[in-house]
Amino acid sequence: MDNLKDLIIIGGGPGGLAAGIYAARADLKTVLIEKGMPGGLAATTEFIENYPGFPEGISGPELAMKMENQAKRFGLEIVYDYVEKLTPQDKCFVIKTGSTEIYARAVIMATGASPQLLGVQGEDELHGRGVSYCATCDGAFFRGKKVAVVGGGDAAVEEALFLTKFAEEVYIIHRRGELRATKIIQQRAKDNAKIKFVWHSTVVKIIGSTMVEGVQLKDVRNGELSNLQVNGVFVYVGTRPSSELVKDLVKTDERGYVLTDENMRTSYPGIFAIGDLRQKALRQVVTAVSDGAIAATAVEKYLEEL
Rank of each mutant, 00 (worst) to 15 (best):
M1E: 14
M1V: 08
L4N: 04
K5M: 12
K5A: 13
I10N: 10
G13M: 03
G15L: 01
G16D: 04
A18L: 04
A19Y: 07
A23H: 06
L28F: 10
K29M: 08
L32C: 12
L32F: 13
L32V: 10
G36M: 04
L41M: 15
L41A: 15
A42F: 00
I48Y: 12
I48E: 14
N50A: 04
Y51N: 09
P52Y: 11
F54K: 11
P55G: 09
G60Y: 01
P61V: 07
E62I: 12
K66S: 00
M67Y: 13
E68Q: 12
A71P: 01
A71I: 01
L76Q: 04
L76Y: 06
V79S: 12
Y82V: 12
K85S: 10
Q89N: 12
K91R: 13
K91G: 09
C92G: 01
K96V: 00
G98F: 07
G98L: 06
I102G: 02
A104E: 03
I108V: 13
Q116A: 15
Q116T: 14
L117M: 14
G119D: 02
E123R: 00
E125M: 00
H127N: 10
G128L: 02
V131N: 07
Y133K: 12
C137F: 01
G139C: 08
A140F: 09
F142C: 11
G144H: 06
K145P: 11
V149D: 07
V150E: 03
G151D: 08
G151R: 09
G153E: 08
V157Y: 02
E159H: 14
A160H: 11
A160M: 08
T164R: 13
K165Y: 04
F166C: 12
I173D: 05
I173L: 05
R176H: 07
A181I: 06
T182G: 11
I184G: 00
N192C: 05
I195P: 05
I195F: 06
F197N: 11
S201K: 05
V203Q: 05
I207C: 08
T210I: 03
T210W: 08
Q216C: 13
E224I: 00
N227S: 13
N231F: 00
N231E: 12
G232A: 02
T239I: 11
R240P: 01
P241F: 01
E244P: 06
L245W: 08
V246C: 03
D248M: 10
K251T: 13
D253T: 14
G256F: 03
G256W: 06
Y257T: 15
L259Y: 11
T260A: 10
T260N: 07
E262V: 11
M264Q: 14
G270H: 06
G270C: 08
F272S: 04
A273V: 05
R278M: 15
Q279N: 14
Q279F: 10
R283F: 01
Q284R: 07
V286E: 00
T287H: 04
A288M: 03
G292Y: 06
A298T: 10
A298D: 02
Y302F: 15
E305Y: 15
L306D: 00
